[in-house]
């Protein structure tokens, strides 16, 4: 059978073109994403301190030093604080966004007048830069000129609200601003889920005598599982990547009260000349996100097939 080799030039070209067209993008992704990931992993095992890969003695080197960067990383109180801050922030951020998003979506789904306008208002923060959001909230929450000052000038002289300057509470202001920015998005995800539920099921449940409360608790919310899953995955990955907001809102302070892994990585890599440690913290961040995203993407792509 010599048949298969007889393809004419045009056909062979047409067979190769698709792969040819895909290859620049693929090459970019392989080099700039996966190659760079491997390189960062490599750097995390070396004694490099600053670019261009210079070590403590000022020599250009990328000498392997085993796990000592990771050991140092986990002995740093700065890193430990940023991990705890992340736990507090992520827990509250994901929890509040989910509840608020679901609540807004359910209420918006009650044939509300001006639903479109309300949705537009709830969602516009998503179009803003975190730097803008951070700036607005930074000054609004500032005790000197913001809410506290306003309340006092309105006559409530004992009013105090200095969370943003308070080591114990500053992290909650980050939660507040982040929730403000993304809860509308979560609302949209849940609203799409609600609109996707078959109305006949709801009618059947009502014929069965289900109250509104039971309708939501037993029929509707269980059917929103995919939306819950998406919301969780998106929110947790946003939480881990949170960087700009902290920079603009608190700069990581007061003290280290709002340091997160992303800000930790940035300052160790670029301002403290501890690139090896910075790289190892980036690897930890990547592994955390990968643990959440890979199973999710895998399931999504499998379903599509």
């Amino acid at each position: 059978m010599s048949a298969r080799t007889e393809a004419d030039f045009q056909t062979r070209l047409q067979n190769w073109l698709p792969k040819l067209v895909l290859s620049p993008s693929l090459a970019m992704v392989l080099i700039f994403v996966y190659g760079f990931i491997l390189f960062t992993v490599y750097v995390s095992f070396t004694d490099s301190r600053i670019l261009p890969f210079v070590n403590n003695d000022g020599q250009r080197t990328l000498e392997l030093i085993g796990f000592s960067n990771y050991e140092k990383l986990f002995s740093l109180s700065h890193w430990e604080i940023s991990l705890w801050n992340m736990a507090t922030f992520a827990g509250l951020y994901i929890g509040i966004c989910t509840c608020l998003g679901l609540g807004l979506a359910i209420f918006l789904d009650q044939k509300i007048r001006a639903e479109g306008a309300l949705r537009t208002i709830y969602l516009y923060p998503m179009a803003l830069s975190f730097i803008v959001t951070g700036t607005a909230w930074k000054w609004f929450l500032d005790p000197g000129i913001g809410l506290e000052n306003v309340m006092q000038s309105w006559g409530w002289t004992s009013f105090e609200f200095d969370w943003i300057k308070n080591r114990d509470y500053a992290i909650y202001t980050v939660v507040l601003a982040a929730v403000w920015q993304t809860s509308g998005f979560v609302m949209a995800m849940f609203l799409a889920g609600l609109r996707g539920i078959d109305n006949e099921i709801l009618k059947a449940a009502q014929m069965d005598g289900a109250s509104n409360w039971n309708l939501y608790r037993r029929i509707i919310i269980p059917q929103l599982r995919p939306a819950f899953l998406s919301a969780f995955v998106i929110l947790s990955h946003l939480a881990i990547k949170t960087f700009d907001l902290v920079i603009a809102l608190t700069g990581g302070g007061p003290g280290r009260a709002t340091e997160l892994p992303a800000t930790f990585m940035y300052s160790y890599t670029f301002s403290r000349n501890q690139m090896g440690i910075g790289a190892s913290s980036a690897v930890i961040m990547l592994m955390t996100i990968a643990a959440i995203m890979i199973p999710y993407l895998y399931a999504e792509l499998r379903e599509k097939k």
Binding site: L26, F32, F36, V43, F53, T269, M275, A282, M285, L301
Partner: peptide, 25 residues
Amino acid sequence: DTILFGLMLFACFIPFQIVLIPMAA
């Protein structure tokens, strides 16, 4: 093709801190 697409898609979600050092270089 699905695997290639998966590789491209995952790239959207990485924490970009992981590429900052080599990208700067």
